[in-house]
């Protein structure tokens, strides 16, 4: 009879243990699956966001390219033709001094307009970027924005450069352009230094000014401003750049690191 009791208790205990084991196993297995699913979902979401941002940037670039081309080829060409006509008319009415001077003044104004349009067109679509690469394009940009003695700029590059793939090149250029334009517009700086260091597996870029500085995080998270910085962050994220920003009353310094690998260089 005691034997019956032992069997009863033992089988009851075994059953309880099996059930507890089942429930614990179920919870662990479920949480693991749920965690994996959440991770997968986050990855898909990030990828979708990245693709949407990339598509938006591509759209912007295409539009810029179109406007740059129209400005350069249509309006620029028309203005150049008018300028040539003005020169021709100036020669024709050389004897009429007053009219000649008037025509030359119009011609000079046209020259300024043509230069302006060319500058806008270059800003919109830097041709050097396609032909000469990122270093030269940034160098040209840095030289173009220089306005000594009020705003001095320096550009240095070291190491053997590699050709970045088109998308990375454009994204990186736009980011640097944004940083430089921010420096000009907001920092009240007198000096801008840009350094490119090409290393074996990464491109290290330092951009520093001696302006008044700003609170990077605060500006970035400000709903009403910081769109440029948000775009900057998005571009960096898309091309896999890591960056550090240091800003105080002595100026702002960006350190941008682009890994050089099959995703970023042109093979």
């Amino acid at each position: 009879m005691e034997y019956e009791l032992t069997i009863f208790i033992l089988s009851g205990t075994a059953g309880t243990l099996v059930m507890a084991g089942f429930i614990i196993y179920f919870v662990i297995s479920y949480q693991k699956k749920s965690f994996d699913a959440q991770l997968r979902f986050e990855q898909l979401k990030t990828r979708a966001e990245k693709e949407a941002t990339l598509a938006s940037f591509r759209g912007q670039e295409n539009e810029r390219q179109r406007i740059a081309k129209d400005l350069h080829d249509d309006i620029g060409a028309s203005l150049t033709a008018i300028k040539m006509s003005m020169s021709f008319l100036g020669d024709k009415f050389k004897k009429n001094k007053a009219l000649h001077e008037e025509l030359m003044e119009i011609r000079d104004t046209l020259t300024l307009s043509i230069d302006g349009i060319r500058a806008i067109s270059h800003n919109l679509m830097p041709y050097a970027l396609t032909n000469l690469g990122i270093s030269r394009s940034v160098e040209q940009l840095v030289n173009r924005v220089a306005n000594p003695p009020h705003y001095k700029t320096t550009f240095h590059t070291s190491g053997a450069s590699v050709r970045l793939n088109e998308e990375v090149r454009l994204m990186l250029f736009r980011s640097i352009q944004e940083i430089i334009h921010n420096s000009i517009k907001h920092s009240r700086a007198a000096l801008l230094k840009v350094n490119f260091t090409w290393e074996k597996d990464q491109l290290s870029i330092r951009i520093e000014d001696n302006g008044c500085g700003f609170n990077y995080e605060k500006t970035l998270n400000n709903v009403n401003s910081g769109i440029g910085l948000k775009n900057l962050e998005s571009r960096f994220r898309i091309i896999g750049v890591t960056h550090h920003v240091k800003s105080d009353e002595n100026g702002t310094g960006y350190h941008i690191i682009l890994p050089l690998n099959s995703n970023t260089i042109s093979l």
Binding site: M1, E4, L5, I7, F8, I9, S11, G12, G15, M19
Partner: peptide
């Protein structure tokens, strides 16, 4: 837990006849 335990108890009570088993 409740119904798995119930099944076990119902089976056990039909197999075992000891009074102590009934108390448990």
């Amino acid at each position: 837990i409740y119904f798995a335990g119930n099944i076990f108890l119902n089976v056990a009570i039909n197999i075992f006849t000891m009074h102590k088993v009934y108390v448990i």
